[in-house]
Simulated assay, not measured.
Amino acid sequence: MTFDLYGFGPALAAGTLMTIKLALSALSLGLVLGLLGALAKTSPYKPLRWLGGSYSTLVRGVPELLWVFLIYFGTVGLMHAIGEMLGRPNLELSAFAAGTIALGICFGSYATEVFRGAILAIPKGHREAGLALGMSKARIFWRLILPQMWRIALPGLGNLFMILMKDTALVSVIGLEEIMRRSQIAVTSSKEPFLFYMVAAFIYLGLTILAMIGMYFLEKRASRGFIRSAA
Rank of each mutant, 00 (worst) to 15 (best):
F3Q: 09
G7P: 09
F8Q: 08
A13K: 07
L24K: 07
S25D: 09
S25P: 08
G30D: 10
G30F: 08
L31N: 11
V32T: 11
V32N: 08
L33W: 03
L39T: 03
A40Q: 03
T42D: 02
L48N: 02
S56K: 03
T57Q: 07
L65P: 01
F73D: 04
A81Y: 11
A81L: 14
E84N: 15
L86E: 06
L91H: 08
A98D: 11
G99S: 11
I105D: 03
E113W: 05
V114H: 00
L120P: 00
G125C: 10
A129G: 06
A132P: 00
G134L: 04
M135V: 01
A138H: 14
A138Q: 14
R143N: 05
M149Y: 00
M149F: 00
M149A: 05
K166H: 02
A169I: 06
V171C: 02
V171A: 01
V173A: 13
V173I: 15
M180S: 06
R181L: 13
R181N: 13
P193M: 07
P193W: 07
F196V: 05
V199R: 04
L205F: 14
L207H: 13
L218S: 13
R221H: 12
A222P: 02
S223I: 01
F226R: 04
A230W: 03
